[in-house]
C-alpha cells in the first residue's frame, strides 16, 4: 500500500515537472489563439505597418493570370477591399 502511494506521489511530481519544463504540453487558450506561437513579441506590435484609420496606399498590381492590372483606386467610394498578404510557405 505504501509503495502504491509512493508511486502515485512520484507520478504527480513527475507530471508537474514535465508541464513546468515543457509548457507546450499544456493546452492554454492563449497558445491556441495564436496558432501555438505564444505571445506576440513587442517588436511586431509596433513595426511601422499601416494602422486602422491611416490612408491606405492604393496600389496597382497584375493578376496571377496576367490578363489585367487591378487598380485599388478604382474601388474608392464604391466598394471596400480586403487584402491578404501571404505566400505558400
Amino acid at each position: 500500500m505504501v509503495n502504491h502511494r509512493m508511486g502515485l506521489a512520484y507520478g504527480i511530481v513527475g507530471l508537474f515537472v514535465l508541464l513546468t519544463a515543457f509548457p507546450g504540453c499544456g493546452s492554454s487558450k492563449k497558445k491556441r489563439m495564436h496558432g501555438g506561437m505564444g505571445e506576440i513579441p513587442e517588436k511586431y506590435k509596433n513595426d511601422g505597418a499601416p494602422q486602422v484609420g491611416d490612408v491606405a496606399y492604393l496600389f496597382k498590381l497584375k493578376t496571377l493570370e496576367g490578363d489585367k492590372e487591378v487598380d485599388l483606386a478604382s474601388f474608392k467610394g464604391n466598394r471596400p477591399v480586403a487584402i491578404f498578404f501571404g505566400s505558400y510557405t
Binding site: 491611416d54 490612408v55 491606405a56 492604393l58 474601388f75 474608392k76 471596400p80 477591399v81 487584402i83
Partner: peptide
Amino acid sequence: FLIRTDGRL
C-alpha cells in the same frame, strides 16, 4: 487589411 471606401484602413 481591409480598405474602407473612403480609402482609409
